[in-house]
Each structure stands twice: as C-alpha cells, then as structure tokens.
Amino acid sequence: MGRFGPEYWDKYGVYRTPLGFNLTLFVLLRPFLVWLMSALTWRPDLDIMSLFFPSKNDFLVAISIAAIALMPTVLYSMRRPSSAQKWGRVWRYMRWPLLLTAVLDLTWLLSQAASNHFQFSFYLAAQIVLVSWVILYLINSRYLTCFFGDWPEPDPK
C-alpha cells in the first residue's frame, strides 16, 4: 500500500484523511467561509468582511485565489468506492493546486501588507502565519504523498 501501515487505513482500505489536510482546506478556503459567516450574521454593527477584506476588490481577489482550492475539495468529497476510477488519476495531482493556492494567497497577503507600509494588522499577520504553515505542511508532509496517491477501489457489489 505504501510507507504507512494498516493503522492508517480506513474501512475501505485507503489512507485516512489527515487532520492537517482538513485544516489546510479550512485556511485556503477562508474567503468563502468569511463570506458565509458574514451572510449568516446579517447585523449592520458586526461587519466581519471588513476585518479581513478592507475593500471589495480585496475580497474578489481573495475569492479568485481560493477558487483554485475548490477542485481538490470537490474531489476529496468524491473519494469513496462508489466514485469513478478516472477521478483517482486526477486526485494524484491535487497537492499542486493546493500549493499554488497557498503561494498565491501568501503573495497576495504580503502585497496587502506592503501596500499598508507594513503597519501591523493582527488579522493580516495571523493569515500570513497560517498560510506559511500551510505551505510548509504541503511541502514537507510525507503522509500527504501517500494520501494523494491513494484512491478507493470500486465496490465489488
């Protein structure tokens, strides 16, 4: 199966999803999550969007960058034995769109910091640190290599 033993497999015989992968999706898809939270908390005195995105243009750029990570997210949701095997060949390369999203996101965040003359902003600094950790995780994780190389076999039923 790979470098990791049966204790890492789920009931279908494929590698279990690492917690770091779920947190990676959470960090990379945060513009969509902030958008959803701001839509659900429809209060004029609580403007969540302005904490993360000072202007509408910043939000649109962030959504555009995060949209790259939607394809791995959709394929991850299809990762079960009843799915077509052709998606397994595509799944093998899904680390690269995530890494591209993280690098573009970090570049965008750093350009935002530079445009503010590197004045300290807690929300911007926290995002930069989180995205940097995601990049390090995507590059250094050996388990992700096995996780992306594994796709469930079709159901024999």
Rank of each mutant, 00 (worst) to 15 (best):
M1Y: 05
G2Q: 10
E7R: 08
Y8E: 02
Y8I: 02
W9F: 08
D10M: 13
K11N: 11
Y15S: 09
R16C: 03
L23I: 02
L23Y: 10
L25Y: 05
L25T: 06
F26H: 01
V27Y: 00
V34K: 03
W35N: 01
L36R: 09
M37A: 15
S38R: 01
T41D: 10
W42L: 13
P44I: 03
D47S: 14
M49W: 04
M49D: 06
L51W: 03
P54G: 01
P54Q: 04
P54Y: 06
S55K: 14
N57M: 09
D58V: 00
F59W: 11
F59P: 00
L60G: 05
I63N: 01
S64L: 14
A67L: 13
A67I: 07
I68M: 14
A69G: 11
M71D: 06
V74K: 07
V74Y: 14
L75E: 06
L75N: 12
Y76H: 11
S77H: 04
R79Y: 02
R80Q: 13
P81H: 03
S82I: 09
S82E: 15
S83G: 01
Q85M: 12
G88N: 01
R92L: 04
Y93M: 00
Y93W: 14
M94H: 02
M94D: 01
R95E: 05
W96K: 03
L100A: 13
D105N: 15
L106M: 00
L109H: 08
S111W: 11
S111G: 06
Q112S: 07
A114T: 09
A114V: 07
A114M: 10
S115R: 15
N116Q: 13
Q119L: 11
Q119F: 05
F120Q: 11
S121I: 08
S121G: 05
A125Y: 12
A126W: 04
A126T: 06
Q127M: 11
V129C: 02
V129I: 15
W133K: 02
W133Q: 11
V134Y: 11
I135H: 07
Y137G: 02
L138A: 09
S141G: 01
Y143G: 08
L144Y: 07
T145L: 06
F148I: 11
W151C: 04
P152E: 08
K157V: 10
